Structures are given as structure tokens and as C-alpha cells.
Simulated assay, not measured.
Amino acid sequence: MTHPTAPRVLITGGGAGIGAAIARRCREDGYAPVIIDRVVDHVPGGIQADLSNTEDTARALQEALAGGPITRLVNNVGVVVPNDAASQSLGEFDLAMALNLRCALQCMQALLPGMKKAGFGRIVNMSSRAALGKDLRTAYAASKAGLIGMTRVWALELGQWGITANAIGPGPIRTELFDKANPPDAPRTQKIIASVPVKRVGEPEDVSHAAAYLLDDRSGFVTGQVLYVCGGMTVGVAGV
């Protein structure tokens, strides 16, 4: 059980998949996760919100901060909207930008006064290996690359207050959505596994372990970085 005075961590999209794994790890590490998601019926104390909507996001953030400042933030919520470049609709593009990018900025700005006052902050932004380029991902890749750009700017601007900002770039991670799109025995899934140097897809816990490191008090000299949790798939693709 989390101690009532445990440091709080705001996790967007923490109701399932990678976000839920990060929440579990945070509890193990002695933090108190505050989860905002579209579906939170199964999440004790979860705050329900449509994070693609600015007004609903503001309302949820106000509710989260009613219990006091929060100095750790995981911008995890996101949407994929796969489509080829010629067919990617403006509606899909706007949704990806709202949920994957704008929401992260809005959450950071809401928590920032408390972080500055504390002289401490940890921001972890969930980007993706797709930011380096991936077919059928125009809107998704653009939003995730934008998240890396924002991460770097925040690292430069906020470091003077003891606030770090880093990004995680997951590769293929076995979640319910991944398994639905990639059945374990399907040839496409086997092709994905064969392309990963460690010869397996990742687990949500692989990403939560990376997030735990970046959220730690002792990671204060690491900022503005992208940690690819991809089994080696970005080797030869990402810049040195």
C-alpha cells in the first residue's frame, strides 16, 4: 500500500498498457500515481477525462492538483491513427496532435509552478521509435517527433529549477492493442520479432523500468535525452 505522504506522479493514459505498467512500478517505488485517462472505472482514484479536449484536460488537471503540487509527470497518453500519407485525414492529424503533443504541453504548464517552487521536477514524455520514420504513421510520427523537440527545449529552459525533461521511445511493446493488431502466430508478427536484435517484442515493464530511472531523484544530471526501449531496433537508424 502506498504511504499517504508518498510523492505523487501524474500519469496520463495510465489506465492500461504501458501507462498502467508505469503506475504499478511507481507504486512499487513508493510513489502515489495520479492517473488521468478516458476509462478509469478500474483505477482507484482515477480521474476520467478526454485528454484530446483542452477544457476537459484543464478540469482534470485542476482536480489532480487539488491535493497539492505534483513534481513528477509522465506524458504517456497517445493515439496512433495509422494511414498512408495520401489518405491521412486532417481530422486524424488534429487528433494525434491534440492527444500526443498538445496534452503534454498543457500538463507540463499546469504542474510547472509547483515544480519551480519545489526546485525539483521530473518530466518523462512518451515518444516512439516511429519518430525516426515509419510507414503509415504520418500524423503519429510527426506528433512523436514534436514531443522529442519539446523535450529538448524544456530541458534547456527548466534545468535551472532542478527540473529534468526526457523522452522514451518504445519499439514494439506487447500490449492488448499490439496483440490485437499483431496476433502472435501471424507472419507479420514473426517478421517484427525477427527484425528485433534481441528477438522478442518488448513488455510494458521494459518501458516502466526506463521511466522509473528517469523519475528517480538521482537522475538529475540526465536531461534532454531520448531513451529508446526497442530491443536494439534503432541501432543504425537513430543518430549517435
Rank of each mutant, 00 (worst) to 15 (best):
H3Q: 14
H3F: 11
T5D: 15
T5R: 15
I11Q: 08
A16H: 14
D29Y: 06
D41Y: 09
P44R: 10
A49Q: 09
D50S: 10
L51I: 05
R59M: 01
R59D: 02
E63A: 10
P69W: 09
I70H: 11
L73F: 13
V77H: 13
P82Y: 10
N83W: 00
D84I: 01
S87T: 11
F93P: 08
L95V: 02
L99T: 08
R102H: 09
C103Y: 05
A104H: 11
M108F: 07
Q109I: 00
A110C: 03
G114H: 04
K116Q: 12
N125Q: 02
M126D: 00
R129H: 09
R129T: 01
L132G: 05
L132V: 04
L132A: 03
G133H: 04
K134S: 11
T138L: 14
A139L: 09
S143A: 09
L147T: 00
A155N: 12
E157A: 15
W161T: 09
W161A: 11
G169N: 04
G171V: 00
I173Q: 04
I173S: 05
L177I: 08
P184M: 00
A186H: 15
P187S: 01
S195M: 03
P197N: 07
R200N: 06
G202L: 04
V207R: 05
A212K: 14
L215S: 06
T223Y: 13
C230T: 01
T234W: 06
V235P: 00
G239W: 09
